[in-house]
Amino acid sequence: MDPEAFLELANEVTKLKMFPYFEAAHCAIVCMYVKEDLASGSHMFSRKHPLACWLSCMLSIFAGTILCNFLLGEPALLAFKNSNSLLLATGVWYLMFYSPLDLPYKVCKFLPVKLVLAAVKEVYRCKKVHDGVAHAAMLYPTGYLIMIIAGIVKGNGGAILKLLERLFRGVWTPSAVEFMQPSFPTKACAAASFIFVLNKKTNLISAPSSLVYFGIAIFFVYFKLSSVLLGIHDPFVPFENLFCAVFMGGIWDALGHAVPTAKGEHTPIKVDSTKNGKTESGRKKD
């Protein structure tokens, strides 16, 4: 592709309006996750506890903005200041849980539709990460770690608040803490936030900001589609294993377990058989 045409395409991607199509795809994917998390009890739960169902979905949909605002010292309820976005999210929630024959859910689960929704949601995720980093940079110009954290929670706040979202539905799962076993979206948001910070605050990346944004969006979309189609869920795992083996004590722990075992194999152990407190030599003397 011609570099100028590629740069123009990147500029157009950065100017995309997220409302309503990208936000609708995000809402649909999130409501699907909540419905699947409820499993076979989703139908009964949505009928018996509609308020809890709505609250859990709204918390998941706006989790990134809620948590980012809270961490940056702003009102968490500012996430709901846009009535159009709230109405859109409520409409998608209603269609996903209360439509006859679960038709919208089945359509969204259809593989071609699911791929389109997943790709659109990842573009939306890239936008959220970029906005989180940019917002934190305005408040804390030298707080690089704050910018990265803001990008992470803005891009994947739903996973971080999963514990609270399930609690709204009366389910307590303390093992669902995202930081114990970070998912790939959390790691990808961390990497994207780091790159955005480097692009904004240093001269290490000489490419235009629009190209950096476009590259990260392609990264998100590519690995999401790879996860759905090829089952590649976390490409960071091999690098994490190598890092932990070298820098987190993995090699030394393995050597520590291996050395006593080797000694135990080559050192004979003499054990005198006893009976009624006497050794064999003692019985011979008697």
Rank of each mutant, 00 (worst) to 15 (best):
M32I: 07
L103V: 01
S281C: 07
H43M: 02
L204Q: 03
V228M: 03
K263F: 14
G277A: 12
D102S: 10
L255W: 04
F70T: 05
C244M: 14
E23S: 09
A25H: 05
A79Y: 06
G73E: 07
H135W: 13
I269P: 00
A188P: 04
G249I: 04
K187E: 00
T261K: 04
L16A: 07
C126H: 05
P185M: 01
T186Y: 03
F219W: 12
G143W: 03
C31V: 03
Y144V: 05
L86A: 12
F214E: 03
T202A: 11
E36N: 00
L7M: 09
S210L: 02
C31S: 14
I218Y: 06
A5Q: 02
H257C: 10
V171G: 00
C126M: 13
S175A: 11
K263P: 00
A63C: 05
D37V: 00
F219K: 01
L86R: 11
K35W: 01
W93D: 03
V212T: 12
G41F: 01
A262D: 06
A28Q: 07
V116T: 10
A159V: 09
E36W: 00
T274F: 01
T202K: 13
F97Y: 03
G282T: 12
L229W: 05
K201D: 09
V13I: 15
V13N: 07
H135I: 05
A119N: 08
S206A: 08
S273E: 08
T267H: 03
S40M: 00
L115T: 07
M1A: 15
G231Q: 01
N69W: 09
V113W: 03
R283W: 08
V246F: 14
T279L: 05
M1F: 11
Y222A: 15
E36S: 06
L78S: 10
F184R: 11
F6L: 15
R47S: 05
H257M: 11
S273Y: 14
N69A: 05
V116N: 00
L103Y: 11
P75G: 07
N203G: 15
A52V: 01
N11P: 02
H266F: 14
D2Q: 12
I29V: 15
L51E: 04
G155S: 09
V107R: 04
F6G: 02
D234Y: 04
K106P: 02
S83D: 05
S226H: 12
E8H: 14
H233C: 12
C126G: 13
F80T: 08
F214G: 04
F236R: 04
